[in-house]
Write a protein that binds this DNA or RNA. Sequence first.
DNA 1: TCGGATCGGTCTCGAAATGGAACCACTGGG
DNA 2: CCCAGTGGTTCCATTTCGAGACCGATCCGA
Lengths: 153, 153
Amino acid sequence: MRYEDLADEPCSITRPLVVFGDRWTLLILKYAFSGVRRFSAFQSALGISRSRLQDRLGRLVEHDILAKQKVAGSAHEEYRLTPKGHDVYPILMAIRDWGDTYMAPDGPPVVYRHRDCEGDGEAHSRLECDACGSPMTARDVTPELGPGLRLPG
Amino acid sequence: MRYEDLADEPCSITRPLVVFGDRWTLLILKYAFSGVRRFSAFQSALGISRSRLQDRLGRLVEHDILAKQKVAGSAHEEYRLTPKGHDVYPILMAIRDWGDTYMAPDGPPVVYRHRDCEGDGEAHSRLECDACGSPMTARDVTPELGPGLRLPG
DNA sequence: TCGGATCGGTCTCGAAATGGAACCACTGGG
DNA sequence: CCCAGTGGTTCCATTTCGAGACCGATCCGA
């Protein structure tokens, strides 16, 4: 009963992690971004057990990250990314950048290229200042109390 | 025995997730970035059981994400971020951006301000093209076979 | 109309991970 | 010496998970 209470923490890192910070959920989303939509397709791609996949997909639908739809003219169900789910992509790309740097000794297995970019550019996650635009690391950051923590009364 | 095999997948999203894609590891790192270094401090901050914390810290040390050091002139142990661990920060910031957008109805509980920035800027994760610099979403990306997947022979 | 195949979904049971608490070893200070 | 604080380990009850069987609905071809 202790872990779930973390969802109440006023922290925008902790709260998402309670939703998708487990073995499978981000992997499910990774395949969702690569076009997988059907229950059985997730199952065979991941090697996850059916009951677990059922549970995780249900949770993602609950949180409006995936949407479940019947496919017209078919018995299939489809799980598609919602806009909220679509916005998880930068998280996966940040993980990938780290993985390419530290866990890909032979170089990146997959290159995520910018479609129609003349310079053959690649997508990369970058931490930057929204005011001056300069790149940032952990050392350049000072946490401050935000509006979500103003105490009422 | 199935899940651990995912570490062999040639995917820079999957491989990091096998290391820190569980309930606690990214939360441990979140506190590490906020200055927590001692075993007991992690334990009381997180409410994780001692044996689990022991296991997770050990794994992070194994992967050279944290480094364990004896503090001179004290009986304490310290777990400090290595450069490799330091580079996990953009992942946490990407999660935070999503959390601020979708799980912080009263606004961000914490603001991550750019130290010494004249414009009072904040740190934000941005997915962009490394060639043309324009912002990107999942729809702008085309995955391609990378050098890490060139088959030998 | 009748199987058979496919699919999403559920159930059960043994295995693995987890949490909680006790216990141990080491250190430093009275 | 004892005692408190720390990191680390071990044990056990609970929870979560994986594997496979099972169910109902749908579709298709015989």
